[in-house]
Design a protein around this nucleic acid. Sequence first.
DNA 1: TGAGGTTCTGGTCAAGCTGACCTTTAGATT
DNA 2: AATCTAAAGGTCAGCTTGACCAGAACCTCA
Lengths: 239, 239
Amino acid sequence: MSATRRTIGHKEPMSVTVDLVIFTIRDDVLQVLLVERGNEPFAGCWALPGGYMRSNETLDGAARRELYEETGVDVGRLHLEQLRAYGDPGRDPRGRVVTVAYLALGPDLPAPVAGTDARSARWTAVASALDSGMELAFDHAVILADALEGARRRLEYTTVAAAFCVEPFTVSELRRVYEIIWGFPLDPSNFRRKVTRTEGFLEATGERRMLESGRPAALYRRGGAEALVPPLLRHFSDG
Amino acid sequence: MSATRRTIGHKEPMSVTVDLVIFTIRDDVLQVLLVERGNEPFAGCWALPGGYMRSNETLDGAARRELYEETGVDVGRLHLEQLRAYGDPGRDPRGRVVTVAYLALGPDLPAPVAGTDARSARWTAVASALDSGMELAFDHAVILADALEGARRRLEYTTVAAAFCVEPFTVSELRRVYEIIWGFPLDPSNFRRKVTRTEGFLEATGERRMLESGRPAALYRRGGAEALVPPLLRHFSDG
DNA sequence: TGAGGTTCTGGTCAAGCTGACCTTTAGATT
DNA sequence: AATCTAAAGGTCAGCTTGACCAGAACCTCA
């Protein structure tokens, strides 16, 4: 309680890391990129990609760099957003490590890329990573669960769902994103009405795409809007 | 890009701090608690209260401790929530400092308390702290602006507005919270309909309170609900 | 006592959004 | 030509919202 505590305080040096929850949709399933740890602690365990922050970069910059190192994808094409910080003592047995978790969303990303430091990385269904006995390193199971809920809520209040689609895309493809991430089907007609009438969500290209069957679908690009008002709410009550 | 970079990495030791944006409503104005810095850097400047994280506490624990040290208020009575992390290089001239910002909301809090380390702390109108030439230390102006927008959005989607009210409180008092934080008046009748019909927002006490003038108002406690669905949206379009 | 002021509380009504459901359109396939 | 499939568009009841009005319950002052 001394007057100096707040000002000087205890400058316990800590490590700061950035961890990435990289979501993509592959094979009609929400998948997350996991890497296999080669060193202790948690050697052999799967973990979220991430790494130590460097002394000359921003948090966002560290996240961008890690993302590029892990996926080889230029960040310009991805949605990247800070989730929150995690810093429980004991979350890393080596000592005090505070991590800032980032959420990255992208369309069907390439398989883990050669030429990066991801020796052993793979896409894993989020459901498998959370439900089954797959033990994630550190507190990454908590971070992943938070990220999943965060992504689900973002689909309600923002237009980020389009970040999962390769441009140009159809309304049905966008609807599949919602259905896969939320885990239940949506009415195609009502969904179309909502997204097409929301100013700035979709931008018509004028083109259409033929599928194997059915009427050709109109193609769209992402619009400029980020917020989705009024939101497109999930319905918990109905089950 | 070596294989060891991600695993071993550069363990640049950094300092981790927790900064608090403590909002309360005093004199019908949204106010934030600021402390005057006694040491360099930014000596003499006003800053958000905060301090270094200790090696044996959680992030939330550090925020709770700082909050108690600054206000003397037991955290049980306050809403405390992590906002996000800030870590630009150069945000602290002493070196690399990553801070995790917390948002604390409470009813008419006491004036800065004796017996704490807040030698010179005071409540300041948020508008003054942001608009005028009051230069806040570090990047605290950015954090404060983010916190204000965060609080405004939380009023739309959650029931935290009640955290600003002393129990028991009236619907009008709750409405004043919205009006002060959003900055425009709301229709009393429609507001009442919304909050009273939202399951779990308010809990009637059966009591009523006489005011200097007008019909006595029914008194309520906070209900158990945290989410406010459908949300109570601000209207940007109308101005 | 009664008039007028103030605030709380409740009601009406049109407009907008949503969910459920149906119909039409435009292609491929048989 | 008939059928299949999925896109696209329409209808309609129900709910929520914003604007607005009316009554209720206190006060004060004449």
